[in-house]
Design a protein around this nucleic acid. Structure first.
Lengths: 220, 220
DNA sequence: TCAGAATTTTAAAACGACGTGACAAATAAT
DNA sequence: ATTATTTGTCACGTCGTTTTAAAATTCTGA
């Protein structure tokens, strides 16, 4: 029975980690686990794990721990992974194609039904089974095929206007790979994958590590 | 003059946003900005922006604000973007190819010199200018070409062993796209891009949004 | 089978990190 | 010279994590 009293984003961002960890455990045919053992695997404190899980209900049992199968199922439910999602990709560049062809997403219930672009040489093609349509057909396709998720892999210059088209067509979530902060109504979910930012942060951390190292050398 | 007293990760993750924002301002030929104006653009509070920037030095001037050009340059320095990085991609799948071909990274000083795989049909090919070599040559290539960054786009099963090879060869940072938590020595930087997790979080948020909406309908 | 010890979760309290608000000091504008 | 603007900084409040104490269950050995 979910308690569901305003879960913080910090907790939500850990849920997929729990999910993956539990699936790995099932693969290894481990059917019972304590927060302490999970802590060893995940690197979070046992206490945090217990508190995280307790946000959604008392899935554990004192003196026993957690039933892996049950907990995995619960987290799948919490994450909304027990249903399928239909998606489209906007922008048939390298990244767009890679995502459309990435079979892994389909395994988890995310089906990419079509790609859209404005480039006439691409429109009409099938890229490994996924058709490429004209942007003009986007709204109609979304409505007719119950598309819930739009993936934006366009150049940054057009990302906002694409987002607006998607919103207009009634999309529920936008998976945004363009390096811009999209402005959408608050009932539309945006999840950003900012590769540049990720790379820059790595750059910072490498630089910092170098500094630490050269400092250590001096002090020896 | 950087103060650099243990900057928190929360601050670091905002730095690329400042960087992008400032570049956009320069494009618009805006050379002066206050924290209040930045706040309007970025959505952070003016107070947070001032405090963030102050971690690294007093870049602003009272009564005036910040010089966009200077601030941009400072943040580039902080992020370590004033130098170039050599990188290799391990795993010539859809994603690996997309990243190797993504010209955007090169613009920011990240040069992908080669890709590596174990698939004999790929080895020896050039994929849009980037050569594909045998994994056996990885360590040698890293040493000879001063490679600092390794990008892992392999299947998850081999990601850890690839990481170990990279570490052994003296890599400084790993940009990891495989859905595993890599174990590396603490002087090696790992920056994860977990696409599955990002997608699952979106799934959660969509589900939650739907719940909110149906709740709202009832209460009307 | 039963009692006691060990394990482990739950819940609450303490602690710490982070973000916000307020104010003094400095500069710019008039 | 005076007023308006704006940063730098510190104090406070909020949010997130860790510690602690209590309760429930399992495990052990006779």
């Amino acid at each position: 029975m979910p308690k569901n009293r305003n879960i913080s984003m910090a907790v939500i961002r850990r849920l997929p980690k729990y999910n993956r960890c539990l699936r790995d455990l099932l693969d290894k045919e481990i059917y019972r686990i304590s927060s302490k053992e999970l802590s060893g695997i995940l690197g979070f404190t046992a206490s945090q794990i217990r508190q995280d899980l307790n946000n959604f209900g008392g899935f554990g049992q004192q003196g026993y721990g957690y039933n892996v199968e049950e907990l995995h199922h619960e987290i799948q439910k919490i994450l909304g992974l027990t249903k399928d999602y239909n998606a489209v990709v906007i922008g048939v560049g390298n990244l767009g194609q890679a995502i459309a062809n990435h079979t892994n997403f389909e395994k988890h219930g995310f089906k990419i039904l079509a790609m859209f672009d404005i480039n006439p040489t691409l429109i009409g093609l099938q890229i490994r089974g996924t058709p490429v349509y004209d942007m003009k057909e986007l709204a109609e396709f979304i409505n007719e095929n119950k598309i819930e998720i739009g993936v934006i892999t366009t150049p940054k210059e057009v990302a906002q206007s694409v987002a607006e088209e998607l919103v207009e067509a009634g999309i529920k979530g936008i998976w945004n790979f363009a390096p811009v902060d999209l402005k959408v109504p608050e009932d539309v979910v945006v999840e950003d994958v900012h590769l540049n930012e990720s790379l820059f942060i790595m750059s910072y951390l490498i630089k910092e590590q170098e500094m630490l190292k050269s400092l250590g050398d001096q002090e020896d």
